[in-house]
Design a protein around this nucleic acid. Structure first.
Length: 98
DNA sequence: TGCATGACTCCCC
DNA sequence: GGGGGAGCCATGC
């Protein structure tokens, strides 16, 4: 069970990622000082319908979009925000959110 | 209760 | 940069 406090922290941090920027599961986890990267991924999967979270701005440590059910949508949204993917499918280090 | 699974990361080669 | 393996921990059956 993910403690609601952590869940709230994870959501709060993700909500703070500015448009056109991305961050990693690991960084979000580190900022919560208690969650792990896997927990962040789990939290994203459990997002309720109608949420307003920019979940698509969370990618993995390799700066790629992890393959899952909504991966295609995630790439589309990032592209729409101006996030450029190189030939290898990685985003530019410049768009990384600290 | 137990075990497999996964929207992960780190370390080593 | 990339592949393989170990570690991690909540979830779900």
């Amino acid at each position: 069970m993910v403690r609601s406090e952590l869940l709230e922290q994870i959501y709060t941090i993700v909500a703070q990622i500015p448009p056109g920027r991305v961050t990693t599961y690991g960084r979000v986890a580190k900022m919560t000082e208690g969650a792990t990267a896997r927990m962040v991924g789990t939290a994203m999967r459990h997002l309720p319908d109608g949420h307003e979270l920019p979940w698509h701005r969370v990618i993995n440590a390799s700066r790629r979009v992890t393959e899952h059910e909504g991966a295609a949508r995630q790439r589309e949204r990032l592209w729409a925000e101006g996030v450029i993917f190189d030939a290898s499918g990685r985003v530019s280090p410049d768009v990384m959110w600290p």
